[in-house]
Design a protein around this nucleic acid. Structure first.
Lengths: 206, 206
DNA sequence: ATTGTTTCATAACATTGTTCTATAACTGCG
DNA sequence: CGCAGTTATAGAACAATGTTATGAAACAAT
């Protein structure tokens, strides 16, 4: 209250810049390989900024994951209106385009960093958890419900079907990401056939 | 040829002990958290042993992954004879019992270490790759073929069906491992329903 | 015993996440 | 206008960890 002091440089703009830079570096090199010093240099600041804005590497990565979830969710939202298969294809597209980030979000690699929860800033607080996964599933749940209304999907439990679909797609994508290049498989065709099979499996019984 | 020297202590017995110890530690703490010094201490030796026997942390983890694949493969082999659903349940059982190791094998986390291929010792050489995944799928492929013979599964491409099944199960398991506790889902029931749906999807068409 | 050779535990090194500290940048007042 | 007060930040110091280098230990041959 007495007197104001040195003006703030570690502001929201820098925070956003660091998020962008980190997302890029993580996508390029993976979360382990990227160092705080690199991130700081790329953002034109010092490692202190990461500590004052996020709290540490763990929280920075958490914030990046949250950032990723928003992008992924938006992508699913759009595709969700175009039906079940479109949602599946959009899922794969996003995952292949965000390789390392996808693994960080869904691969459980985040657990390696989980321990010190941040106080909960406007955005970065709280560890990425199932809540976000369920959030991200909302468009898929919507698509399943719509398909039921159209009679394409039978009257099974919606959450169960959605999770089954999600797991199917996630499994294919993570298999493709992890071992795709070294497996003699036509992933496009497999993906297509699998989506159809998934729908077939939950079609109304005659 | 001139003269023999100090007797070898870094032998195959120690190698095996280090493999066991590392597998345990990795399963308990994950591959990032476990340190070479801890491993060496737990094995009653020094970090040098890891370098002379494996080449480094990367190759040690690769060897552990290979070790894991053998165990997993054996488990699948047994279950494969009992049918498709049994294979799926055995898959899940093994994965839940080997949490971190499973992620190391199938989660793509190994890529973080991939760079220096070892010369290829009797066992640890070569990075774990798609070959092992396909190997591990063999029992599943057998089960699918058997199910086709019984008329439970239709005349679709076997590899395609097997991969679809594998992805389905892998997706469920990794979702459960990563977010299971924080999602309000009855995983047992979901697993059961999903296995049935998978079989239904590829049933012979009328 | 001495020498030579090989093996291995330990010490030194480089990198990286994190914490500490001293300086920089500003305000308000004399 | 300068000086004290205050806060933010860059950079130094610290701790941990994978890796490499070094020198001592253990044995055979002479």
């Amino acid at each position: 209250m007495e007197s104001m002091a040195r003006p703030i440089v570690h502001d929201d703009a820098l925070r956003q810049r660091l998020l962008d830079v980190t997302a890029q570096l993580v996508d390029r090199e993976g979360p382990e390989k990227v160092t705080l010093r690199d991130i700081a240099a790329a953002g034109g600041t010092s490692t202190s900024a990461i500590y004052s804005l996020f709290g540490g590497k763990s929280q920075l990565l958490t914030a990046v994951v949250n950032y990723g979830f928003r992008s992924f969710h938006a992508s699913q939202e759009i595709a969700g209106k175009e039906g079940l298969k479109a949602t599946g294809w959009a899922y794969r597209k996003w995952a292949l385009e965000h390789d390392a980030l996808y693994r960080l979000m869904f691969g459980g690699a985040m657990d390696a960093y989980a321990e010190g929860r941040s106080a909960g800033g406007p955005d970065g607080g709280g560890l990425a958890d199932g809540g976000q996964t369920i959030d991200a599933m909302a468009p898929l749940i919507g698509a399943v419900t719509a398909a039921q209304a159209e009679g394409v999907i039978g009257p099974y439990n919606v959450m169960l079907i959605a999770t089954a679909f999600w797991a199917q797609v996630h499994g294919l994508v993570s298999l493709e990401l992890a071992r795709g290049a070294s497996m003699p498989i036509d992933w496009d065709a497999l993906y297509d056939a699998t989506l159809d099979a998934g729908i077939r499996a939950w079609a109304p019984r005659p």
